[in-house]
């Protein structure tokens, strides 16, 4: 039998025997970023559609958690940096070719917007909230007046943020599993699905819940379609990409991917949501938690398995 044995003298920490430079911080941050993008997108979308009163949880309640999850996500990102004291270097330059630079600048835009959005809706949660200083009250009045404009910027930047979480991976040609542009729309869809799940959890109105259950089913169908296409693309591609796809098609990551991401994270919650629409009583916490879990697992598995996929030489 013909064999090729490659022996390397290199044994660099975090690089060999296979790359494992990115740990839990990056997938967690990508999950939180996607979730934030999902929630903000729905808030902006239904505001622009003039349906604020119909979808209260989406526009006025759920966005309050976004600043907090973004702060946690950014903290995870900071933990990932190995030269932490120099993090500000991200903001001394704009590099259009670098997805990470895009991400840093989009977050610079989205994070303050999410705080503003939360601030102008804070009285929906704390009716007796008092800003105390006149300047803050003036600012609130100003931003409330500009709500439509904010919603436009927020809607667009949240889509960029959602797509960016996938593009961050797909821009790396060196890791064949990541090198597919499907990851952009897939991660955006996954983020929207997670956002819809959080809105379902927080909504008290049955009508709003069923609306978001419907949206979520639609997004899950799109996700399944994208996953099938991702594997079709890999299998029709070069040897390195076939090998990469095999990590999930019989390789060591097969069971976690298909069980946690596809079955528990997509098919089961979509099925439960269909039952809910058929008037069965399903506690909303079950499908919503499963969707969030699946969305988190998707990031973790793609991140970890991707670092194991490589070129042959």
């Amino acid at each position: 039998m013909r064999e090729e044995i490659i022996v390397s003298g290199r044994n660099n920490y975090l690089i060999d025997p296979h790359l494992h430079i990115w740990h839990w911080q990056i997938p967690l941050y990508l999950f939180l970023g996607g979730l934030a993008a999902g929630i903000l997108f729905f808030a902006a979308f239904f505001t622009l559609m003039g349906k604020e009163n119909k979808y209260k949880a989406a526009v006025r309640i759920a966005p309050h958690i976004v600043p907090w999850i973004l702060v946690v996500g950014l903290f995870a990102l900071l933990l990932d940096l190995k030269h932490k004291l120099y993090f500000w270097r991200l903001y001394t330059t704009i590099r259009l070719e670098s997805p990470m630079s895009w991400g840093a600048w989009v977050l610079m835009l989205v994070t303050p917007l999410s705080f503003i959005w939360s601030a102008i809706h804070i009285k929906r949660i704390f009716p007796k909230w008092d800003w105390k200083f006149k300047i803050l009250k003036d600012l609130e009045a100003f931003f409330t007046k500009q709500k439509k404009a904010i919603a436009w910027v927020m809607g667009i930047s949240s889509v960029i943020l959602g797509v960016y979480t996938g593009i961050l991976f797909s821009a790396f040609n060196a890791r064949p599993l990541w090198n597919t542009s499907i990851l952009g729309p897939l991660f955006l869809a996954s983020g929207l699905s997670a956002g819809a799940a959080v809105i379902m959890l927080l909504s008290r109105k049955h009508k709003e819940r069923t609306m978001f259950a419907r949206i979520d089913i639609g997004i899950i169908v799109v996700e399944l379609f994208l996953i099938v296409h991702m594997f079709m693309g890999f299998l029709a591609s070069t040897q390195v990409q076939i090998n990469a796809a095999e990590l999930f098609l019989g390789g060591p990551w097969t069971a976690p991917f298909w069980i946690f991401v596809v079955i528990l994270g997509m098919i089961v919650p979509a099925f439960l949501e269909v039952l809910e629409l058929k008037k069965f009583k399903i506690p909303v916490v079950i499908p919503a938690t499963l969707v969030l879990f699946g969305s988190l697992m998707l990031r973790f598995l793609i991140s970890y398995a991707g670092q194991e996929s490589r070129w042959l030489y």
Binding site: Y13, I15, I21, W22, K82, H83, K84, R89
Partner: peptide, 27 residues
């Protein structure tokens, strides 16, 4: 080194795995 934030993007992007994180933080 003093512009590098140690994000690891370049390490991930290299098909030859020619880079490594220096213990001082930079790549």
């Amino acid at each position: 080194p003093n512009e590098c934030i140690g994000c690891g993007a370049c390490i991930t992007s290299c098909p030859y795995d020619a880079r490594y994180p220096h213990p001082d933080g930079y790549v």
